[in-house]
Design a protein around this nucleic acid. Structure first.
Lengths: 341, 341
DNA sequence: CGTTAGCACTCGTTATCGGTGAGTGCTAAT
DNA sequence: ATTAGCACTCACCGATAACGAGTGCTAACG
């Protein structure tokens, strides 16, 4: 569809534009050492590329900038995945050497590394808690009428909530209910806990306690049922250094979107596995129609766990970001493997 | 020091400026129904007020704006604490009716309410976990070589971390150590846990286990020793709607500061109790030298727990924010009382 | 026929300049 | 003490002109 020369010119324009953020003219291309054509020739090609929809002109007397279609072609056919340089590699390696005692730390750390290395905004979706299974359930009395319910999953994830216990309910009864729950529901996925509670536990509980209904109600409260994925952001202010966001209003719409955790979750949870690139209007959310979102999923034990992503202007260093995401998602997979064995 | 009329004029100027964000001229003041002097008279007074340092002129032919000193005088002597209106009151009341199962939720909710009602940025410092005492310590095995350590405080706060357990260490030994720890250290403040671990527990443990050193090392790892206060932010993007932040660079310095949790902690933890107003350069951090920070502490059982604050431009609705913070800090105290009884 | 030099043209950017108006400080009259 | 009057300042606005980077087109070249 495109000649070699056209591809080469498109490539050069996008590379230069990514670096300079300014429209690229024919003269500046012709001056490059790896280009041996006069500006006029370049101009002809550029006009063709524009007609084909790969380039745009901000106004008649300016150079060209890539269109969404141009970026898409670049990402699909031209981009050279840059080797992650030694310095960055070292930063990534710190990932493994550091001792972590909570999974959240790993994820947060990953987000931070990403935003630091790229100077864009990183978004990381943590593993789905609901998919894990129950390892241990416990009720710890705090005062006369309150207790803390603790749920530990097979991955070592801990959820807790405070519940209040009616005066007239004895601790023995509660404890018995908890025991039954533990004996019946260990190994059950968190997401199915609530429904199983009423069938398996309710049935067994009916034999011992007469306050069955109320006990179940309290246990029900104690079981977590939200927060499937957690969203970690880092480097949100990096956006502000990009020239395309010198306008405060644009920044606000994007930052507001980032604040909406549910939207992010929804946006991320539907992504297919592997590396995905969403350029400009390819994104469903209007707020980031002049951003690109690059995502990579990470998994352990063959199961897809979560997603790491980078949000930046469409004029983004695709090569660098893609290779970085690729590397990091694999590193995370390795690191998380021990949580999921 | 100031005449009644000067005070009145200063008051009017600041009130108007807070609303309009534009320099106030003598004519616009004179036209107000509650002012009965000609522009010329006002001008004379304004010149005096400027000489005294309460007002400033952006340039010769513009009106006056309040100086830091002017705001300070306003806050100290003039500001009329506006009654919290019914709508806002209702929003605050939702605070009590909503059922919460985690203290974090309360705090986060408080931050959200604040930023929504004021359209500024809210910063809330959660209670100090380290001041609480140990209620329960437990080790839950997850796999052959890992376990989750769980610490529950007397307030129902739960902390957890994953630790790895050497192959050659038996679960019985571990369990015994945990039992000793529980019997010896319940009621001890979290902050003193580590030191007590080696004295009280170490001594007792020495009698039973020969691997005393190693056991202690593992327990040491399991005990939390960071995160004394947690910082909750809400409405950070509200800043972007203020005309004084139409410049992206200014926004960035402020947002970057907000991202630095340790700095915020440090800034807040040194505050005296009650309501504090820091105007412009009164703030120690240069990044917020054209912001004002209003803070209120909240407490339960006579003990100061944390701080809620509002960050906005110096041109801030002091009356509204102060009364709101006052009300909310008291509400929070009431609500938290049940966690701390 | 592909390539390129030449040239007129477009259009955003920047600087300049006069007019406008909001606001001031000062003075003199009330 | 207050205020009307007035000259003055200066940011802001709109128009105009010079500038220059970049283009499209045409004609010449190898």
């Amino acid at each position: 569809m495109l000649t070699d020369r056209q591809r080469m010119i498109l490539n050069v324009i996008i590379d230069d534009y990514i670096r300079s953020a300014e429209p690229i003219g024919s003269r500046s291309i012709s001056k490059r050492s790896d280009v041996s054509f006069s500006p006029a020739t370049i101009r002809n090609e550029m006009a063709d590329l524009e007609e084909l929809g790969f380039l745009e002109q901000p106004h008649t007397s300016a150079g060209r900038i890539p269109s969404i279609k141009g970026y898409r072609y670049y990402v699909d056919h031209l981009v050279r995945l840059s080797q992650v340089n030694e310095q960055d590699r070292q930063m990534l390696r710190s990932f493994f050497t550091e001792k972590v005692s909570q999974m959240e730390q790993i994820i947060q750390h990953a987000a931070m590394i990403l935003s630091n290395l790229t100077n864009y905004t990183s978004i990381v979706l943590g593993p789905e808690t609901m998919a894990n299974s129950l390892k241990h359930f416990q009720l710890i009395p705090i005062s006369d009428d309150t207790a803390v319910a603790i749920i530990v999953t097979n991955t070592g994830h801990v959820e807790n909530r405070t519940i209040s216990i009616p005066e007239d309910m004895s601790m023995e009864e509660m404890q018995q209910a908890v025991n039954i729950l533990n004996s019946k529901l260990i190994g059950v996925p968190i997401s199915r806990l609530k429904s199983k509670l009423y069938t398996e536990v309710g049935q067994e509980l009916g034999r011992y306690a007469d306050q069955c209904e109320r006990l179940l109600g309290i246990l029900d409260e104690a079981i977590v049922d939200d927060d499937e994925h957690r969203v970690f952001l880092s480097g949100t202010t990096n956006m502000l250094t990009q020239p395309e966001f010198k306008d405060v209003d644009k920044v606000k719409t994007v930052l507001d979107l980032l604040d909406e955790t549910p939207t992010i979750k929804q946006m991320f949870s539907t992504l297919p596995s592997g590396i995905q690139v969403r350029i400009g209007t390819e994104n469903t959310h209007e707020a980031i129609n002049n951003c690109s979102l690059i995502t990579a999923t990470y998994s352990a034990q063959g199961k897809q766990l979560g997603t790491i992503g980078i949000l930046g202007p469409t004029r983004m260093d695709y090569g660098k970001v893609i290779s970085l995401l690729d590397l990091l998602s694999k590193d995370m997979a390795k690191l998380l493997a021990r949580w999921y064995k």
